[in-house]
Design a protein around this nucleic acid. Sequence first.
RNA 1: GGGCACUUAGCUCAGCGGUAGAGCGCUGCAUUCACAUUGCAGAUGUCGGGGGUUCAAAUCCCUCAGUGCCCACCA
Length: 694
Amino acid sequence: MDKAYDHKKYEAEIYKKWEESGAFAPSETGKPYCMIMPPPNANDDLHIGHARFVAIEDALIRYHRMKGEAVLWLPGADHAGIETQFVFEKKLKEQGKSRFDFDRETLYQMIWDYVQKNKSNMENQLRSLGASCDWSRERFTLDPEIVRIVYRTFKKLHDDGLVYRGERLVNYCTRCGTAYSELEVDHVEKEGEIYTLDYGSIKIATTRPETIFADAAVAVNPNDKKYAALVGKKATIPLINRGVLIISDEAVEMGVGTDALKVTPAHDFTDWEIGERHNLERITVVGRDGRITVPAPEKYRGMYVNEARKAVVADLEAAGKLVKREKKQMVTGVCYRCKNPIEPLPSPQWFVKVGPLVEPAKRAVEEKKTVFAAEKFEKIYLHWLDNLRDWNISRQIVWGIQIPAWKCGKCGEWTITAGETPGECGGCGGKNLTRDTDTFDTWFSSGQWPFATLQTTQPGDFERFYPTAVMETAYDILPFWVMRMTMLGLYVTGKVPFEKVLIHGLVRDKQGQKISKSKGNVINPLEMTEKYGTDALRMALVWGALVENDMALAEDNIRGQRNFANKIWNIARFIVMADEADKAEGGAKTEMNDDDEWINKELKKTVKTVTEDLEQFRLNEAAAEVYEFVWHKLADVYLEKVKGRRAEAQDNLRRVWAEALKLLHPFMPFVTEVVWQELKFGESPTLISAHWPS
RNA sequence: GGGCACUUAGCUCAGCGGUAGAGCGCUGCAUUCACAUUGCAGAUGUCGGGGGUUCAAAUCCCUCAGUGCCCACCA
């Protein structure tokens, strides 16, 4: 054995050996233990957050496999609709092109090819992180079998009256050219201006003067005495001198602006609701391209909203209708992806009625059918469900699963199928049908991932492994994913998709700052594994904090764990050299003393606490326990004591070491496996398939 | 405005009812011995402030202060 452990020499070879040995596939017997991997987006390299989930999930997977359970860790890849199209469009832009230069089929094919390349890249990175998942069962969210299931769910929802097509005010990104769900809108605070305008009989305050041409009313609070006499009278929109009714509605809060609100149903969510209550006209003056349209006065048409705002304000001022303008900190919705301001626009979309899905999803958690490992996330989950609105599942992009809905050219009715092209309109029998060009929200398909995967891998998998044991994922997608999986899983299969939810925190830089490209504090997991070895990175990612908490990751910690890997290597080296010496002297002659009994007792204690910690998902504690035992008890104390009576203690040392390697294996799979094979323990040719000590 | 957390050694974090812990960093010493990617020894904290419960509180309760994250239609 070399003097120091060289991870580069062993990792790839060991991984190949594991994979070829069939150890990643579930055994025929044993209690089923299934984890579905959160499928990484197939559009980029893995980042440090992926490395953390691999470290956590693989540790649990290896532990349960060693306990003799039938373990299935099912890997996958996500087509990640918006994300991927966004990334791809950036590439196109670098080449001086845009999505509008291609027809739908060509664009789809180009993204497909791009994704396939990234997908295999991503898979290799998971391998290099040591993920012991069953590649023979890998699924991609656009696999035809998966798509069929997604279609079927949509049809079922539709047949049950839980899907409707509605003209609603949606969060529209004029840059991305698609509507989003409420969850995909970020809110940023920035300085804007609020303008007080003279509406003749009343003054109103607004931050969006460019939309005055779409006003349908002016609203005041029903309890507002100062305006009570005006309700039912008319106000006059300046510049165009159109009269609108003054109405009263409880949505108007008092103490804001002039206490009078211009109601623009087509361009504001509050106003939309007021409009519904009062049956107001929905006048649109902003188009999907973000430019002003008719019926705004001609001079503003074609302007982007920002320019139009300036122009309108200037004209209002000239007309003497601008009473006041002042700076104001305000919160605006921006596209979570491109950060452009979200434009609320009326648009026909497919919605899922969430009410009937929310109740079972709440009950499942309240009745502990699904248990959150960290209670705080259960509270957050329930809070989310209580405040959920109907889910817009249609996106105006090409990259994704096209919605199986056809519109009749004759009667205008929609025909929904489970994927197949309908022969005729379900309403009038017309033959002239056109398919909706929209695609599903990515989360609509990934929300079905646990059952969609298991129903399409091997016969019997679903019956055997569903509900899965644990869903492990990051907290930032709790509402997007965990919540939707529970709702859709319960709806389609009648059972929760997973029994436990283990949520992990974010990886931050060593000062605890959020990692971002713009800050330049990105930690590249592949660079770290190259430099210090996968085991070191993984141990550092588990060691630093409770699974559920954010973790500050310093390179020093990774280096420290590399040193630990080297310590493991050298303990083994010591034992090998002792073996050789024994052989030369005619074999070990076992004779136990107090030191042996002490280390055996310490080992037993360690086995107990590490096992308990793993059962409770306290991976940091478990890792620290083994570390303490191996380095500071076995190496620093026992090994030193043994030096004087090597031959008598050798058998016990080998036995203790074999058990210690097992405890370490979930956290540092490579070096422990190399060492296990080096020492040729008889129990099992590979450590990955050895038995967890008890 | 609503929700969820956090505040413990210089830094990053564990501990969550029984007289303070780890890693890194720091100080000193050692070292041809499995490992300098090392060993041994050591310093550093009225566990955010205040109140309460208890024989006993970093740990439970209340309160104040600060920090972070998520949500939200204040025009």
